[in-house]
Computed example of a mutant assay.
Amino acid sequence: MAPILDIKNLHKSYGSVEILKDINVSIDPGDFLVLVGPSGCGKSTLLNCIAGLEPITGGTLSIGGRDMADVTPKDRDIAMVFQSYALYPTMTVAKNITFGMKVRGVDAATQDRKLQEVAQQLQIEPLLNRRPGQLSGGQRQRVAMGRALVRDPKLFLFDEPLSNLDAKLRVEMRSEIKKLHQNLGASMVYVTHDQIEAMTLATKIVVMKGGVIQQIGTPSEIYNTPANLFVADFMGSPAMNLIPAKTRKNGAGTILEITRADGAPLQLTDTRNQDLPNDVLLGLRPEDIAEAGFRAGASVQEAECLVEMVEPAGADTYVTSHLGGAQVTARLHAETSALAGKPLSLAFDLAKVSYFEPNSGMRLN
């Protein structure tokens, strides 16, 4: 199957300032690609290059097998949904949605049929005669999506479409977009700085930092096997625990020695025969540190830790401790007996551990 979007060795500079550096990514038809990273990492610039709103400085970019080098945005067979909605304030919702079709010379009957289809799909039928000024933020975003949907393009592009909405509405609209993707089987590229949005929507995630791709993978790959410290820290809420440790081999495997502020070092044994340097950063997600007795298995090891803070959060309780000079968060069940200032036996699941080289930040296992 030929990729619907294929980007090879793409560079983008403004004068002597390089914004995007050697970008290589492709997606198959029906994929939902999410570009995620902190502000200023280049994700919106990359989206604008795909849309043709920004010329590329080097490399190639093709959509549906066609090189986009000299193709204008209107001829790229794309539809874009912006953060700002970009609706015409003097037009009704119906006219906002059909305006693009009208400009392209689509006949009135087809315009009306497509309008009714998307209005039903997005549940905006009662709003068709209103103007944008009479709509809430969520309703405006639905109209902006409706305008993109009637295009039936090769590629949908979303530029942080939910960032202007309040938290509850953002969760609702996220579900709407996921449902749309499932129902349409459309190809989508979506920009966000919200890693929860990225994890829930994507079939493929591109994590960016400073104009460089840090990792490309499925949500599961990005979450469970981050390629470096940046991805480990950026993806996940709370972030992955990164604990300095010393390693040494013995007959049983690799001993991981972690300093404790309140006494003898904590020792864990990774029975897999890992070939590790003497100093590592040991990465464990908060959910992979449980209260002793609540997780069993050959890879689970228990150790006593001093609890510094207990944070109830509904279904979970987050407990923080200090190990190796780093703050460590464990995600425990709501009824935990953990008390601040008291020791608690914690179970570490070493089957889930990631090892990182402290200086380069690269993954070791």
Score class of each variant (00 low, 15 high):
residue 171 V to Y: 09
residue 76 R to D: 05
residue 350 L to N: 05
residue 246 K to W: 07
residue 211 G to W: 06
residue 264 A to K: 11
residue 51 A to Q: 08
residue 41 C to L: 02
residue 321 S to W: 01
residue 54 E to R: 11
residue 170 R to M: 06
residue 126 P to Q: 09
residue 354 S to I: 13
residue 4 I to L: 13
residue 202 A to S: 08
residue 182 Q to S: 12
residue 195 Q to P: 10
residue 83 Q to F: 09
residue 356 F to V: 06
residue 44 S to F: 11
residue 259 T to K: 15
residue 241 N to V: 09
residue 233 D to I: 00
residue 248 R to P: 03
residue 351 A to V: 02
residue 340 A to Y: 05
residue 314 G to C: 09
residue 95 K to L: 13
residue 246 K to H: 13
residue 191 V to D: 11
residue 197 E to R: 00
residue 170 R to A: 09
residue 293 G to H: 07
residue 158 F to S: 02
residue 290 A to L: 02
residue 208 M to F: 06
residue 29 P to Y: 08
residue 337 S to L: 01
residue 85 Y to Q: 01
residue 53 L to A: 03
residue 103 V to W: 05
residue 148 A to P: 09
residue 95 K to A: 14
residue 334 A to V: 00
residue 105 G to Y: 09
residue 250 N to D: 15
residue 55 P to N: 12
residue 69 A to L: 12
residue 171 V to W: 11
residue 318 Y to H: 13
residue 218 T to R: 04
residue 66 R to N: 14
residue 285 R to T: 11
residue 25 V to M: 00
residue 281 L to K: 14
residue 362 M to P: 03
residue 36 V to K: 04
residue 166 D to Q: 11
residue 72 T to P: 13
residue 34 V to A: 11
residue 358 P to V: 10
residue 286 P to R: 01
residue 165 L to C: 05
residue 105 G to K: 08
residue 30 G to P: 03
residue 196 I to E: 15
residue 238 P to V: 04
residue 116 Q to C: 00
residue 101 M to I: 06
residue 301 Q to E: 13
